[in-house]
Each structure stands twice: as C-alpha cells, then as structure tokens.
Design a protein around this nucleic acid. Sequence first.
DNA 1: GCCCGCCACTTGCAAAAAACAAGTGACCTT
DNA 2: AAGGTCACTTGTTTTTTGCAAGTGGCGGGC
Lengths: 122, 122
Amino acid sequence: MAGHDFRSGCSIARTLEIVGDKWTLLIVRDLMWHGKQTFQALEESAEGVPTNILSERLKRLVKWRLVRREAYQKHPVRYAYHLTEAGKSLEPVLLQIMNWGHEHLGGGRYDPTTGKTLKAAR
Amino acid sequence: MAGHDFRSGCSIARTLEIVGDKWTLLIVRDLMWHGKQTFQALEESAEGVPTNILSERLKRLVKWRLVRREAYQKHPVRYAYHLTEAGKSLEPVLLQIMNWGHEHLGGGRYDPTTGKTLKAAR
DNA sequence: GCCCGCCACTTGCAAAAAACAAGTGACCTT
DNA sequence: AAGGTCACTTGTTTTTTGCAAGTGGCGGGC
C-alpha cells in the first residue's frame, strides 16, 4: 500500500503486519465461511472477541482493502462487512492453517464445499 | 496438547494461539529456509526481533514441540534449534502466507527448491 | 591467574496493546 | 414517552511488547 513502511521486504513479514495476531484471521474466517457480516454477528463468534478489538480490526481490514463496509439499509442505517477479492484470496491461507491445527492440535475441520465442520478427536 | 485449554475447538483459533503473532512464524521461516539455528543467528534476522521476545517464542515453540533445542557442543556449551516434523509441516502455511503477501503487498518470493528469493516490484 | 570476548540469554522499565465493563447515540417499536 | 436494537466508543486495568543494559559460563591470550 502506498505510503506504508513495511519492516522488511519479506512477504511473510509483510502479511503478518496485517493479519499477524490472534483475532484478525478469525474475523476473516467468519466473513468467509460463516455468513457473518454485521458487527453484532461477528461479535458473537465462538471465541468472543472484545468489541473494541473487533472495531479496530475491521478498520484495519477496510484500510487494507480486504474488507468493504457498506450500509445495507437506511432508517436505521445498518452496516454489512464483506470480503473483497483480496480478502477472499486468503482462503488458501486459512485452509492451510486449519489443516495444520487439525493435524497437530486436534481442532475441527471445516469443509467449504459442504459447509460442514467435522469434529476431531481431542 | 494435554492439559491445555484452547479457547475454542476451531483449528484456526487453536493454531493462532501458538503462532498468532508478528514474530513466531518469522522464526519458523528462518529455521526452515535460512539455515539459522543458533540464538544469535536468529537474532540477526532481517526484521530485528528483540531478544526477550526471541527467547520467549523459542520456549513456546519447544513447549509445543515444533522446535527442539539441543547442545551441539560442550566446552563451551552451545545450543542449536531445529524444527521437528510438526514444525516442518508448517511449510505449506508459510508458502501460502508468502504467496498472498507477494500478490497483495509486493513482498519477495522465496523458492525453497532453489533457495533463491525473487524480489518483487514495490 | 587475569582480563577480554563470545554466546545465550535475563532483567528492568517505559510504552503500547489487549481485555473487560460500561456508556453513547441514532433510530425504531409500542 | 419509554424501551429496545445496533454499532460502536470510552475508561480502566492487565498483559504484552520493545528497547537497553546486564549476567554468567566458558575459552583464549598474555
């Protein structure tokens, strides 16, 4: 992005400046797969993100154009968040992280084609 | 892992509890691709990780068995850090993150087969 | 034996970020 | 007019980070 100083030229380091924390990719996950597109729906995610963090992360995602924020109605105005193409292109990243967590930490595995989550052992 | 309380059953959430920060995956990157295996070599990484953070992250990686720490010599004792199989299996995650950062943030792209980094535009 | 340096950290402290609870304001329903 | 919903914001405490400096084991040179 124009005007931003990355800490290095490494693509991994750059990506982590945007999504390198405990929450951002969970928000992307919910937007991508779980049909959550309002602030409140995202707030009710399984992990219980604090609202100030959610607010700040959404702003960052919008700033980096991974997410668009738009009013889907007036009177009263209500906002919906949607992934942009750049945001949607994080899906392979999410899938790899999910696969690793499934293999090594016993977490569930979501199948985007069926929309079902298969629970694992542990 | 036995005894650990994950915040949710989601594989992504679980994985982010271990590697969800700005530094951990950079350490894994250096161990995986850049032949850095001592504390000092890792400390001299491109991004300049603070030593207390490096120390703490290495401990976490060892605790989760993604990394092994072993003395490679006595007199004086010197330690080397190596990825375990679980650690090495993060490579696809790293590659996806790198690809995304290359496409969207103009970072370089490393080719593990040749060991060369191709620099991008921006 | 004593000083110097290297390596692998640890410690102390200030600054930033995260967590938690509560509050705000626009608008709508009753 | 009172109460509710949604989308946040604000205030406060706790935790984490970043930075600089210090520590301790060991070896080598003099």
